[in-house]
Design a protein around this nucleic acid. Structure first.
Lengths: 355, 355
DNA sequence: TTGAAAGCGCTACCAA
DNA sequence: TTGGTAGCGCTTTCAA
């Protein structure tokens, strides 16, 4: 036996502040590493006495299993990869927070990466996560094509798409019902008396297209014709996005005759830019033009004109994505892709309220 | 040689969509895994011819080294742990984004966890990251004591504190010069003509104490006496933090005789609450009371009254933290702890500008 | 310049 | 109920 006192002491002396291993506990207790391993994983076929001794020693030595060694054998890394276009964007920050909360205490760690809205960078980040053998991926994608998802599928790693989806790609998806978002925001403007309703749309993503579709549906339902000149895009370059893009787009809209009396915006930053353009032009909100945004993620109550916004419940999206991810890793074999849609909710504030 | 077509095909068939290993490449090429390993790591003592063949085959098979196996031997996981109190807070979101950008392309992945401002949860999250053997930790801590850092030190894992620091703990730190923040915001109010300047302070953290100290210094420098009743705290419960806390604190301040004519706030959400309280009381900003916040992270330009704020350059803090973390992992042995302070910058807007 | 052997810390499998 | 043996995929060491 090698657990002679001297040997143990010497080993410890040599291994200095190296972490405790199963072997150390086994030697201390005169057992085999296999027994320790079984105790650690709650295996049933271990004597109660042995069990207690091992657990006690583990606690004393503050034993922490080595994830790398475990992963090497089991093939599971107990990591989840999350890819978002922008961590600063409150929507994605909230989603990340909710996912983080959703997996807490389950033994998983969350590796978060940002694609900075760059499809190429996103592919690199995904490749890195695949190389790390994450157990499952959650992706809010900035891709234009479906190709990179094929590559994930080849690797046999399950993934959940959030926020943005792709036509013809049967994948797991969690997001908001974007057409409902569009209908809800637009119908509210109609109900508040607007008739010449414009839409500032987002980039070529499923979310932007869905909201625009909902906008058209709401107009149609009210018997209002869709006028192409009332739908404007924001630029796609970084700086045109958000408030500056909304500002420019609105200046265009203000030049229309007759002028729109309501604007439904793809998101809140765009709506902020729109409101500024309207106020700069000396017009009143909502009397001359009512404004509705989407996201409800800003300090909307404190704005010059508090902004009405369609809330997409980002916390629920994160929570559902976490649940789905956990379900996928513990599922054996492939599961049929599922889609879960969160219902939007209208938060009415001064920017649209005409009494 | 074993790279007869049939053999290769058969092996592949057996290993289905299992990832390619060095062994596979070695067998294909009639080499040993050692050679493959050396090529992968750019070892010099490999023949140019062999090198090329290996590299070519790696690319063909899309070989990805197994991190777990590598970590098991080298002890390095190529992961960085980041612990923040709240991912939704724009300051921490910006820091996370900047750290993420700062380590990009260096082979590291970032595991992000949130402590939800809960010291106990923070300890659990740190324990989990230590168990995962991250190479280095970056922590914006919600601790009251220094104990948990001792535990990290025992493990011999380097760490960087950001934002909040601890007296008597010689640790690596990156943050803003909080006294300068306090002096800058307060001096600006003085310069704009305020004399009865109040301060709404934050919780018992180094940042809040530092900013309060700076506030006092600025008053002293201008020969203005510090009046204790003009310094108020926000509640420490979740809901009292931020805007609601600022609102309540300001109501207290408005009851003072004589009434303050300027308020320096610990952060922007508090300043928002303060402004609302002032406007609700029928007073004007900045004519009756000027307001200054800290952080400059909100859509301050779009507020009812655009908010003057002391910018703490969170992107720079994140960048420096990333640099420091990378330096620590590649340093051999222990390094003397360093402190890096970012200079704040005043962003003047309408809430304080009296011409 | 190349590779055989050993082993990182752990788990799977099967025998005792 | 317990443990011996083998081996996960890779790097390290040292010999050829």
């Amino acid at each position: 036996m090698s657990n002679v006192p001297g040997g143990g002491e010497k080993r410890k002396a040599v291994r200095r502040n190296a972490p405790v291993r199963m072997k150390d506990i086994a030697q201390d207790l005169g057992l085999s590493t296999v027994t320790i391993s079984k105790v650690l994983r709650g295996h049933s076929d271990i004597g109660e006495e042995t069990r207690k001794r091992v657990l006690k020693r583990m606690k004393e030595l503050n034993y922490q299993p080595n994830f790398a060694a475990r992963a090497l054998i089991t093939g599971r890394t107990w990591t989840i990869g999350l890819v978002v276009p922008d961590l600063l964007h409150p929507f994605f920050a909230q989603v990340a927070k909710a996912i983080s909360a959703g997996i807490r205490g389950q033994g998983y760690s969350l590796i978060i990466t940002s694609s900075e809205e760059d499809p190429e960078l996103e592919q690199q980040e995904i490749a890195q996560l695949l190389a790390r053998r994450v157990d499952v991926l959650v992706i809010a994608s900035a891709q234009w094509t479906v190709e990179s998802f094929r590559r994930i599928e080849e690797r046999g790693i399950p993934y959940v798409l959030i926020d943005r989806r792709f036509a013809g790609l049967p994948a797991n998806f969690v997001g908001v019902d974007d057409e409902a978002v569009g209908r809800m925001g637009t119908a509210h403007l109609i109900q508040q008396g607007s008739r010449r309703i414009a839409h500032i749309r987002g980039p070529e993503t499923s979310t932007a297209l869905g909201r625009m579709e909902g906008y058209k549906q709401a107009l149609a339902a009210a018997g209002i014709a869709v006028r192409p000149e009332r739908i404007v895009s924001i630029g796609s370059s970084g700086d045109d996005r958000g408030a500056p893009g909304g500002y420019e787009a609105t200046k265009t809209l203000l030049g229309l005759k007759p002028r729109p009396d309501g604007i439904f915006c793809f998101n809140d930053p765009i709506a902020l830019g729109a409101m500024r353009a309207i106020l700069d032009a000396g017009l009143r909100i909502p009397e001359d033009i009512a404004v509705v945004g989407c996201g409800n993620v800003l300090y909307s109550d404190f704005l010059r004109v508090p902004l009405t916004s369609v809330d997409q419940d980002s916390a629920a999206i994160g929570r559902l994505a976490a649940e789905m991810a956990l379900r996928l890793v513990s599922a054996k074999g492939t599961v049929r892709p599922r889609t879960e849609l969160v219902s939007p909710r209208l938060v009415v504030r001064a920017s649209s309220l005409r009494k």
